[in-house]
Design a binder for these strands. Structure first.
Length: 267
DNA sequence: ATGACGGATCTAATCCGA
């Protein structure tokens, strides 16, 4: 038996409920963590998930922006929402799910994008992003307890091979040194294991996001790895593999992010 | 060669994403 966890920045859960149902039918993850749901909880398409076999929901949504959700085939326990940078902006939700004899804690994050200008003195959005990562680092020990998995759109591509051109993206928000070093400090503070890179060597390019603005996303392949699955050491030891569902970028009216699935052996 | 797009919102132009 195994536990499979998927993460997907869906860019509107209501607009793309059809694509989500297709993904769930094809890949049948036990749990799906969504970001950018852009949907108040009262309007979440609960019925569609229930009918697809995912009746257990943990929601933190708001109108128009941000929003995270955990949908599950298995019951969810201990749902909680953390807030960062003194804002209530629906960027974290956590829940526990039964896995063998234990309960696994899932943290689902949507880290601020950070705007265009990578200078915190000129751009308050970038300052917010850096402060958010810093607060996560302060909370790392609490978040990364044994039995924990962290997923989500972290909006940072930390390794050189996490972007199509390391050199050309060094001054582009998502791959600047202050961000990548900050994210790696947060990871080390857990410590968290980068589960995707356990299975895809760091020498190999690996992307989860391709801009809408490139008409020819597949041929030009100017992607970035912005979505991540991390695990505490005990869970990382149980990781069996990951899948990046790249074909989802080519579906009708797609999200600009694709789903990532990780599978863990049951304790 | 970082936008040529695409989403949500007080449907029209604006904010946002990264």
């Amino acid at each position: 038996m195994s536990l499979s966890i998927a993460t997907w920045n869906i860019n509107s859960v209501r607009l793309r409920i059809g694509l989500i149902l297709q993904f769930l039918a094809e890949h049948q993850p036990d749990v799906l963590c969504l970001q950018e749901t852009k949907c108040p909880d009262a309007l979440f398409p609960e019925k569609a998930f229930r009918e697809a076999g995912y009746p257990h929901l943990a929601l933190s949504g708001q109108k128009g922006y941000n929003g995270v959700a955990i949908v599950s085939r298995r019951p969810l326990f201990g749902v909680d929402r953390n807030h960062f940078c003194d804002r209530i902006d629906c960027r974290h939700i956590e829940a526990k799910v039964e896995s063998g004899q234990q309960r696994v804690t899932l943290h689902n994050f949507y880290v601020p994008a950070g705007g265009d200008e990578p200078d915190p003195d000129k751009n308050v959005k970038f300052a917010h992003k850096l402060a958010f990562i810093e607060e996560l680092t302060q909370a790392a020990e609490r978040l990364a307890q044994p039995g924990s998995i962290l997923v989500g759109d972290l909006n940072i591509a930390p390794l050189e091979t996490d972007v199509w051109s390391h050199r050309q993206l060094l001054k582009v928000v998502s791959h600047t040194p202050v961000e990548t070093e900050g994210l790696l400090r947060f990871q080390a503070a857990g410590p968290w294991v980068d589960v995707m890179r356990r299975f895809v060597p760091p020498e190999e390019k690996l992307f989860t996001w391709w801009s809408y603005r490139s008409p020819n996303w597949e041929a030009s392949n100017r992607g970035r790895r912005l979505d991540h699955i991390w695990a505490a050491a005990d869970m990382a030891a149980r990781a069996q593999g990951i899948k990046v569902i790249k074909e989802a970028r080519g579906w009708e009216r797609p999200s600009d992010h694709v789903p990532v699935i990780a599978t863990f052996a049951e304790a």
